[in-house]
């Protein structure tokens, strides 16, 4: 019995982008500042949960038409491949390296392979959180 919650919906439409951008910032900042894959993933997931609360789960599914379990699997795959990738260079499993590059727009930037691993963590956390909340949520119906 959902009444007219136009304020919530409108606010959500705005806020959700802020949350997502903030979460991506937190995720990227993790190497030097507080943050990282775990907390970034949780926040991104929180954005989608908010979307689910304001609208409903079907809307979320329409917005991101991906199976969250696949995201989990993808994240795990990336994390493992980061580790396996070290073998190509004759290094041990999960050996990371970093270097500084001149990038357009960003200037001199540090790129670390640890970031790739963190992407895996990020995706797993999003996938796990949303799988749990939406499987429980769908069950309520």
């Amino acid at each position: 019995m959902r009444t007219n919650d136009v304020i919530l919906k409108t606010a959500t439409q705005l806020i959700i982008f802020i949350i997502i951008i903030f979460s991506i910032y937190v995720f990227l900042a993790g190497h030097h500042n507080p943050g990282g894959g775990f907390i970034g993933g949780l926040m991104t997931a929180a954005a989608f949960v908010l979307l689910g609360l304001a609208f409903d789960i079907d809307t979320v599914k329409k917005t991101i038409p991906i199976d969250f379990k696949m995201i989990t699997a993808l994240g795990l795959l990336i994390a493992v491949l980061t580790g396996v990738g070290a073998f190509v260079f004759g290094a041990n499993f999960l050996t990371h390296t970093f270097d500084y590059f001149m990038l357009p727009l960003l200037g001199e930037t540090e790129l670390a392979t640890a970031l790739l691993f963190d992407i895996g963590v990020y995706l797993v956390v999003i996938g796990v959180t949303l799988t749990i909340i939406f499987s429980i949520g769908e069950d309520q119906k």
Partner: peptide, 27 residues
Amino acid sequence: AGGKNMVNVILVDFRGFDTLFEILVLG
């Protein structure tokens, strides 16, 4: 490791192996 956030560097770099299996636990 080229990171200033020591906690995160430990999590993904020095002790990335643990993290790998923790995300597996989550999955």
